[in-house]
Design a protein around this nucleic acid. Structure first.
Lengths: 190, 190
DNA sequence: TTCAATCTATATCAGATTAGTAGACATTAA
DNA sequence: TTAATGTCTACTAATCTGATATAGATTGAA
């Protein structure tokens, strides 16, 4: 069920671009981003080229150049990006909605594996097709502020580096981060 | 987010063994199973060897030999089998519960990608670690009977082959099969 | 003008993984 | 005895992954 490095780096890049933009730095250099996340520069360049080709980022060449987001963060969904870079989300093709291919089993309608994988693919899609870059960036910034962590991307002049790790794990509950942050006061029911 | 062919075939094999057992045929030959699902025989043999090594199936050699399930279906969880054959379920290692590895990003606690992938991994695990072979087999058999389809594995003497495809898509609602079948009459709420 | 920092384009590559195939051998029921 | 099975070991072709290498184009600033 793996996300490729290529996909991972692409998402990290977009998220970082988003955070930086919110902090007043609309443009980032590949080298800077690679340094921050410890990614191979040349590989990341290839990935940016692909993202540019597909309208997610735009570039500025020459000194003080770099990449910036090419469309509103609210319109960048993670599912779409992952499908672009890693292919279909479905564990097996016969349950893919965007790239269905019939499988070799004799009776697809009564296939137990298919039923199971259909649920898996839907569970994944429900998350990846729901969250936009805007939401993830917002949640991340909120967490950074909550824990009083020096933010990663400051205007070039004042940039301090590397990020200071937070002294404590601040708030418990590492699991289901997104849900816990979104549903601030949800009614519970047994 | 792919399931490998190896993993897919392993699960198909277990499900078929389960169905056959319920229908009174506790042992199946590799060749028969391969023929039914149209899988390469020799490859499937390797997979069975792995399943045997890990206590999922047992074998009987010689004429009339074959493979049978080595433990109760209620104790075979899909998550465990997939982890055995395909490795961790988590899309990236830093959100794996069974095979955690720290990633290269500077601040794991405030990593947006990690938050997102944590939710994805939990959504997948919730399904794969919940359902047992017993449940999938039961649901499959119920569907087969409901649609009056000739069942795949009959006692050797009366075996008819191949399976007849059902004339109609019988009942609508191809999506979320498992849920719809389990929660027969659940109260809904807006 | 010149230079250094940036993106661009193309080629190459080592290693791992995937999805098998091939063939000889061991065991067992009929 | 023989035919049908599982067992074991080796091999492999193709593809994918995760890069690296090299040369070039563009631009801002000194």
């Amino acid at each position: 069920m793996k996300l490729s490095k290529r996909g991972e780096y692409a998402l990290r890049a977009l998220i970082d671009l988003g955070i930086a933009k919110e902090l007043g730095r609309p443009i980032l250099q590949v080298s800077e981003l690679a340094a921050k996340e410890k990614l191979p520069v040349k590989f990341l360049e290839q990935i940016f080229a692909q993202l540019k080709l597909n309208g997610y980022v735009e570039s500025k060449r020459g000194k003080l150049g770099g990449y910036s987001l090419a469309k509103p963060m609210t319109r960048i969904k993670f599912g779409t990006v992952i499908r672009l870079i890693d292919g279909p989300i479905a564990p097996i093709q016969c349950v893919s909605k965007t790239a269905y291919v019939r499988c070799s089993c004799p009776d697809e309608v009564h296939c137990g594996l298919r039923m199971l994988m259909l649920d898996v693919r839907n569970a994944i899609a429900k998350i990846l097709d729901r969250y936009t870059l805007a939401e993830i960036v917002e949640i991340t910034l909120r967490k950074l502020r909550r824990d009083k962590v020096t933010s990663p991307f400051l205007p070039p002049s004042t940039r301090l580096w590397p990020v200071l790790l937070p002294a404590v794990n601040a708030r418990g509950g590492d699991w289901r981060e997104l849900e816990s942050l979104k549903q601030v006061s949800k009614k519970r029911r047994k």
